[in-house]
């Protein structure tokens, strides 16, 4: 049974169709990449999966259950975690407290039970030295790491990553790839939107190409990179 299933999902903002009859599924333990030009509707797809935006038509299922009308909070409890493209930390809380909220509310556990897990995530995401700093004072890179760390703290089964590799140096990108590989290896299913293709291709098994809200193609990274339609749309190369 797929962990995530979208079935003929449609969403428009006014007259703009941002999600146009999207159907695909993700198997447990898989890592799927999503690529597409700016404004293709990638982030909106995540909003539909988490419930931050309501679908106009179609069905979203998580672990076989219909979650199309479920509140975002409930989907988080069910195991959907995400990072936001523009990081939204809780600015007046410390980095550690950001994680404690996510860990204790996401999993309904007592605060004392989540301390070790939060510290562990901070070590893994390279934020441990800033644990007691106010999140509002972090730079962009650390904010992106905090997005990842906070999503992990909710103990997700499915992790949605929205452009977390943008703007990183080569070395930072490498360490991020290692981090995400480790997360994937721990059994978490990953769907990752990214413009940095080599980072994506180092982790995912399949790529989904989105353009004008439509699924253009889905398949192995090699096949997608070789496909003429994809090269034309995404890479802007005339063939």
């Amino acid at each position: 049974m797929p962990i995530l299933e979208l079935d003929h999902v449609v969403k428009s903002f006014g007259s703009l169709k941002v999600t146009d009859d999207v159907t695909f599924s993700v198997e447990p333990g898989e890592a799927l990449g999503i690529i597409g030009p700016n404004g293709a509707g990638k982030s909106t797809l995540f909003n539909l999966i988490t419930g931050n935006v309501r679908v106009d038509a179609g069905r979203v299922s998580f672990e076989g259950a219909d979650v199309t009308r479920m509140q975002p909070m409930k989907r988080c409890h069910a195991g959907v975690g995400r990072t936001l493209q523009i990081p939204q930390p809780f600015e007046k809380l410390t980095v550690f407290e950001n994680l404690v909220v996510a860990a204790s509310m996401g999993s309904q556990k007592a605060e004392s039970e989540v301390t070790d897990r939060c510290a562990e995530i901070l070590v893994d995401t390279g934020l441990i030295e800033r644990a007691n700093a106010l999140a509002g004072g972090l730079g962009l890179l650390q904010r992106k790491r905090l997005e990842l760390a906070r999503a992990l703290a909710t103990d997700p089964k499915l992790l949605l990553l929205d452009e977390i590799a943008g703007g990183l140096t080569e070395a930072e990108c490498k360490s991020l790839i290692e981090t995400i590989r480790a997360i994937h290896a721990s059994g978490i299913t990953i769907v990752w939107i990214e413009h940095v293709l080599h980072a994506l291709n180092a982790v995912v098994q399949r790529l989904l190409v989105l353009n004008f809200g439509k699924v253009v193609d889905i398949g192995t990274p090699e096949d997608m990179m070789a496909s003429n339609a994809v090269r034309e749309i995404y890479l802007g190369i005339e063939v």
């Binding site: 988490t50 931050n52 509140q71 975002p72 909070m73 988080c76 409890h77 995400r82 936001l84 939204q88 930390p89 809780f90 600015e91 007046k92 809380l93 950001n98 909220v101 996510a102 509310m105 996401g106 999993s107 906070r150 999503a151 703290a153 909710t154």
Partner: peptide, 13 residues
């Protein structure tokens, strides 16, 4: 967390 960012708070449960 709700005071700082209600949407993000909901997203973490």
């Amino acid at each position: 967390s709700v005071r700082d960012n209600q949407d993000a708070a909901r997203a973490v449960g």
